[in-house]
Design a protein around this nucleic acid. Structure first.
Length: 198
DNA sequence: CCGCCGATCTTT
DNA sequence: AAGATCGGCGGG
């Protein structure tokens, strides 16, 4: 394991579909708390009916139409913050939703931020849980992960992405459900549990 | 284990 | 009215 270093903006400049599997096993850090990313989903923007950016920019989604490497944070069901990394060139509203992670550091603070969790593997095994465990919320909207002083970074600590990531349909959507744009680390217990639609 | 349901904000 | 979710509760 080499010393972690932040990923450069060029890492996020490709299409979200290409970047998403490369984010598996990367380290996400915020103020001493960190997780290893084990599950992500790609959203393609204007060409993707399931993307929040499908109908063009709104106050909520405008960050996705900006440069890559910034955070798109949204409130899910009025309750839970979820975090995405904007990908693709300027004006292309791609993003990768960070869905689950394995807790690495700052475990005590993650427990404190996730009082409902009973087991350690439940600290960040869902998009709302992941953001909560790390303390990410609307204050982090638009944050530039590649800026020198960013409190949130994605780092490469030498663990490569899986050679053959698992794929499947994205979770919780009702349109464009046939695309296998969810990627996760095979057999990892920190991947989110499958949920039935309501 | 599984299924139901409420919480509560943004967008359509 | 629906939604890129979660956790508490009840039943098997």
């Amino acid at each position: 394991m080499t010393r972690p270093r932040p990923l450069p903006r060029s890492f996020f400049a490709g299409n979200a579909l290409e970047v998403a599997p490369q984010l598996l096993n990367k380290v996400l850090e915020h103020r001493g708390r960190s997780i290893r990313i084990v599950e992500v989903e790609a959203y393609l923007g204007c060409d993707d009916p399931a993307s929040h950016a499908y109908r063009g920019p709104t106050p909520r989604t405008e960050v996705m139409f900006g440069p890559p490497g910034h955070l798109y944070v949204y409130l899910s069901y009025g309750i839970h913050w979820c975090m995405n990394i904007v990908c693709g060139p300027n004006r292309v509203a791609g993003a990768v939703l960070l869905r689950a992670g394995a807790p690495l550091t700052g475990i005590d603070e993650q427990w404190a931020a996730r009082p409902a969790a009973r087991r350690r593997i439940d600290l960040a095994n869902g998009p709302g849980k992941l953001a909560a465990a790390l303390g990410i919320d609307d204050r982090h909207r638009g944050l530039d992960l590649c800026a020198a002083q960013s409190p949130v970074i994605v780092a490469d600590d030498g663990v490569p992405p899986p050679a053959s990531p698992m794929t499947g349909p994205r979770i919780g959507i009702s349109t464009a459900i046939d695309h296998p744009w969810r990627f996760f680390v095979p057999a990892d217990p920190h991947v989110s549990p499958a949920r039935r639609p309501r």
